[in-house]
């Protein structure tokens, strides 16, 4: 990289804007994080460092409620992400490994539909649909709704990865008398793995994140973390909510790191 090209690329003002961008993105999160360690029960007055709100999250009066919500959130996210990842892998194989066919564009439109429709519209439509067919609201309704709208999020990284893998790998396998199943599970899937992991993680986070659809379709007594947090926050922001937020924030950092490592694994063995 020569000095000259650096100079051409450089626009004065872009560095400060980028720093502002980071401050904007992190400022509120970091402040909430700091205040989650505040000893004072009044959330705006600083009363010294303490872990009492974390203790309350795990052992306080409301702990069972939030633990149950966390349990629901994680089980739903695992199942929704796994199912949508499997569906996304199938779809990606059909879209990228089966030549051109009628309905390809339509399929792509269909798969990306949940991305394009505003979430609140999906939520309304799903609620009306479940109520019309008499599907009783509860844990299952949340799960089913999550599977549908996680598919595009799983699909995009998987398809992107599959696109970068030449088809001669599985062709060679089949030429060597491997069955199609063997060709997929032993040859193609290991190559696709980074994409599959990214897709799974993204779908997992999207499911874990979702508030609007869950809020519409959840049944009696079934809460996920976002709906439980929302319910609590409506009555005022309490320090224990900040502690939960900080824990979830840490979790996000872990997920990004995992996803990043998966990507790195991908670029290394790309060949």
């Amino acid at each position: 990289m020569t000095g000259k090209s650096q100079d051409i690329r450089h626009y004065s003002g872009f560095l400060p804007i980028s720093l502002i961008c980071l401050v904007l993105l992190y400022g509120p999160l970091i402040i909430v994080m700091i205040y989650s360690f505040n000893d004072s029960p009044s959330i705006t007055v600083w009363g010294g460092f303490s872990l009492r709100w974390y203790d309350e999250v795990f052992h306080g009066l409301e702990a069972p409620k939030f633990k149950k919500a966390a349990f629901n959130s994680f089980t739903i996210a695992i199942m929704a992400a796994s199912t949508s990842t499997v569906i996304a892998v199938c779809t990606a194989l059909a879209m990228l490994r089966c030549g051109n066919f009628r309905g390809k564009a339509v399929t792509f439109g269909l798969v990306s539909l949940p991305l394009m429709v505003p979430e609140i519209v999906t939520a309304v439509a799903t609620l009306i649909f479940f109520s019309t067919i008499g599907f009783k609201a509860g844990y299952a309704t949340i799960l089913v709704a999550h599977i549908a709208f996680c598919i595009p999020f799983a699909y995009l990284p998987i398809a992107a990865r599959l696109q970068g893998i030449e088809s001669f790998y599985e062709e060679a396998a089949v030429d060597l008398y491997a069955s199609r199943l063997q060709a997929f599970f032993q040859i193609l899937m290991p190559l696709m793995l980074p994409g599959i992991i990214s897709g799974f993680l993204l779908a997992f986070v999207i499911s874990l994140d979702d508030f609007i659809i869950t809020n519409f379709v959840k049944g009696a007594g079934v809460e996920t973390l976002p709906t439980a947090i929302f319910g609590a926050v409506k009555q005022g922001i309490k320090p224990n909510i900040m502690a939960i937020s900080t824990l979830l924030l840490m979790l996000s950092v872990i997920f990004v790191t995992l996803s990043y490592l998966a990507g790195k694994m991908g670029s290394r063995d790309k060949g």
Binding site: F71, I78, M79, V86, Y139
Partner: peptide
């Protein structure tokens, strides 16, 4: 591993 995660989750539920 995915299937394992899924079955575990179902069992947990």
């Amino acid at each position: 591993r995915l299937f394992f995660a899924m079955t575990t989750a179902f069992l947990l539920v």
